[in-house]
Design a protein around this nucleic acid. Structure first.
Length: 657
DNA sequence: TTAGGGTTAG
């Protein structure tokens, strides 16, 4: 089924008492051949040679070890083991093939121990065909041999094949062990080919319980992680709660599950519980990365600073991913300078550190600064990653640096050999679309050689919302309704566009479609951190904190603003109502409630920091500009895309967002 | 002999 022929041809020539081999894919220049004696006597010199080969490998001198191997007629199993490990470590497929050939000639080709090692080696060297070939040729397939193949296939995402061999293994009378289960569960997650991978994962879950592995912490953590990656948070949490034995890894996996599935509050609560209740499972650097991610998502600066203190006390502040996560946390909490300071102090940086900094500046609208950092990175010899380009193109987009973005995009292939992915095309559509160059944006989509994905169409629809372009919005939403019919945001965007164009019949039609599909508009939510507590506000929700007081405050504010020329931008309301009703609705937007709460509950002169789950509406934007001047306050708002820094009646986005 | 959790984007 998967081609089990020898992946390489070996010419075999009889030459006196020796066999002469010349593996065709060898890259050896010297010596090009090897001579293997057929003698089987173990001599003192043989013992010495074996020891020498092993010690040369351990010192990292693989080439020298191979020279000794040439002279040695009787390499031991252990010698081959060390050689195989060394080839994998040196990342040399040609040497690996050579050792493999040598091993076959020495009669070790049916040794299941070495077959396992060879499969592992080929998997590490990225040659799955060779791994399969070894498996095929091995007659005595121990659980180690099976696990090695299943692991090798799982690592490269061949999920369907993993599941095939998994059932073959059980059918052949070998029972899965705890290792098999972890590999198979991983394969469900990484699979590009398996049909209904979540369903398969659930079946494996049942088998794990049936075979009494529920106390195996590795297996259960992998299971928890599988559910987390499929977004099944309640399943993950049930597995976690039922685990009789937990350790730092299982706690971290559950915290990461919440952090990755848009539940940062739950992640932070669980972290607190971990510190309070668990004395054996101590948070480590991996735990802290997810915790920082959660602070960043909430823009919880004070909490983030507390966590930073904890990291320092625990001595985790020199670990690169922790530092990178700290840079991002400070950036997302509106403290660019703290992120920059950390970056400057780092003794070692990787491409993620640079990307984090670039994206921070990009999100704050400092596009040119982001480009300078990108250039500094490449000048220092650090190769940009695909994510570097997503960050820098996003930065160009927020700052309306269209030409600069186009040049960078072209350099991806020409200068760095990185082929743009769908995400990169989505960035380009966003860059052009935001700048009202919608014809160019649609041309990018039309010229794609592959089927445009939802991110590309989503970028176009977002741009159509900004520029109220009904024609392209209808085209984008038609594609999106097919690609992701469950995404309520797309229906709302289209309805917004129709509402702005006063096409009320169409607004009703889209709303009906939304209801018919059992979907609901995502409610606008804003939150603010005051004295290390996070207060969240939902539009038109009577249960908001200090509700009466906030509404009275906003009514008064609205009156004063009107006297100074403010005109409520009621076009953002999706309903065909009279102006007064519309005004009432926009005055109850969650972001205005959070601004009012901030003004009432923070000290004069203190910067107000607000975060919002959606894009900032035009009316909230102009009201916040007004308030920043009227109340003489700096107000920092992070919406779903970027930061807005309001000061003296002006916003850092230059009204371009 | 083999295993589990984390960083950057949109």
């Amino acid at each position: 089924m998967w081609g089990l022929q020898s992946p390489y041809n070996i010419r075999q020539v009889h030459f006196g008492n020796h066999l002469y081999y010349s593996p065709s894919r060898h890259c050896y220049s010297s010596p090009p051949v090897c001579f293997i004696s057929l003698s089987t006597k173990t001599t003192e010199s043989s013992k010495n040679n074996n020891q020498l080969i092993q010690s040369l490998c351990k010192q990292g001198s693989l080439k020298q070890a191979l020279q000794v191997l040439l002279k040695e007629p009787n390499p031991s199993q252990q010698t081959y083991e060390v050689l195989i490990y060394s080839c994998a470590h040196k990342n040399s497929l040609s040497d690996g093939l050579y050792v493999h050939r040598h091993l076959i000639d020495s009669g070790f080709d049916q040794d299941p121990f070495l077959a396992t090692k060879l499969i592992n080696m080929y998997a590490e060297l990225g040659s799955i065909d060779h791994a399969r070939w070894v498996f095929d040729k091995t007659r005595e397939r121990t659980i180690y041999v099976w696990n090695a193949l299943i692991h090798a296939l799982a690592m490269v995402g061949h999920g369907e094949e993993v599941l095939h061999w998994y059932s073959q293994m059980n059918w052949s009378g070998i029972s899965s062990d705890r290792y098999t289960y972890t590999y198979v569960l991983k394969a469900c997650v990484n699979s590009e080919s398996a049909i209904f991978p979540l369903q398969k994962g659930k079946e494996i879950h049942a088998q794990i319980l049936r075979h009494g592995h529920e106390a195996r912490v590795h297996v259960m953590t992998t299971l928890l992680d599988m559910y987390a990656r499929f977004g099944c948070v309640s399943n993950a949490s049930s597995v976690f709660d039922a685990m009789p034995v937990k350790n730092s890894v299982s706690w971290s996996a559950m915290i990461a599950c919440y952090a990755k599935n848009d539940m940062p509050m739950k992640a932070l609560e669980l972290f607190q519980q971990m510190i309070r209740e668990e004395h054996d499972s101590v948070p480590n650097s991996v735990t802290m990365v997810s915790v920082l991610q959660s602070c960043a998502a909430l823009a919880a600066l004070e909490l983030g600073k507390l966590i930073h203190g904890y990291i320092l006390r625990r001595g985790l502040d020199s670990i690169l991913p922790v530092l990178n996560a700290l840079i991002t946390m400070y950036g997302r909490c509106g403290k660019l300078e703290l992120g920059q300071h950390l970056f400057d102090q780092m003794r070692k940086r990787d491409v993620v550190s640079w990307n984090s900094l670039i994206s921070n500046y990009g999100m704050h609208g400092f596009g040119r600064r982001a480009i300078r950092i990108f250039e500094k990175m490449t000048n220092q010899g650090i190769s940009p990653s695909p994510i570097s380009f997503i960050s820098i193109l996003g930065a160009c987009s927020h700052a309306s640096l269209v030409e600069e973005g186009k040049i960078l995009f072209e350099s991806m292939v020409s200068k760095y050999g990185i082929h743009p992915s769908m995400e990169h095309y989505a960035c380009m559509v966003d860059l052009l679309g935001r700048a009202n160059r919608l014809d160019e944006a649609i041309r990018i989509i039309e010229d794609l050689r592959i089927e445009p994905g939802p991110k590309v169409w989503g970028s176009l629809l977002g741009s159509c919302r900004i520029h109220c372009n009904v024609k392209y919005a209808e085209r984008a939403s038609k594609a999106l309704f097919e690609l992701e019919p469950w995404n309520a945001g797309n229906y709302v965007l289209l309805a917004d566009i129709y509402a702005e164009a006063k096409m009320w019949t169409e607004v009703k039609r889209v709303k009906k479609l939304l209801e018919a599909r059992g979907l609901q508009k995502i409610p606008g939510c804003s939150w603010i951190e005051v004295k290390r507590t996070i207060y969240s506000f939902v539009s038109l929700d009577g249960s908001n904190p200090q509700n009466e007081q906030l509404h009275a405050f906003l009514q008064k504010l609205s009156k004063e603003m009107k006297e100074q020329g403010y005109v409520p931008q009621t076009k953002v309301v999706l309903y065909d109502l009279d102006e007064e009703e519309k005004e009432k609705i926009i005055l109850g937007h969650s972001e205005k409630l959070a601004v009012a709460f901030g003004l009432i509950n923070t000290a004069k002169g203190e910067t107000i920091r607000i975060t919002k789950n959606l894009r900032l509406c035009e009316d909230c934007h102009s009201v916040t500009k007004f308030v920043s001047k009227f109340a003489n306050r700096e107000i920092l708002v992070r919406d779903v895309n970027r930061f807005h820094h309001f000061k003296d009646g002006v916003c850092s986005c230059g009204d371009y967002w």
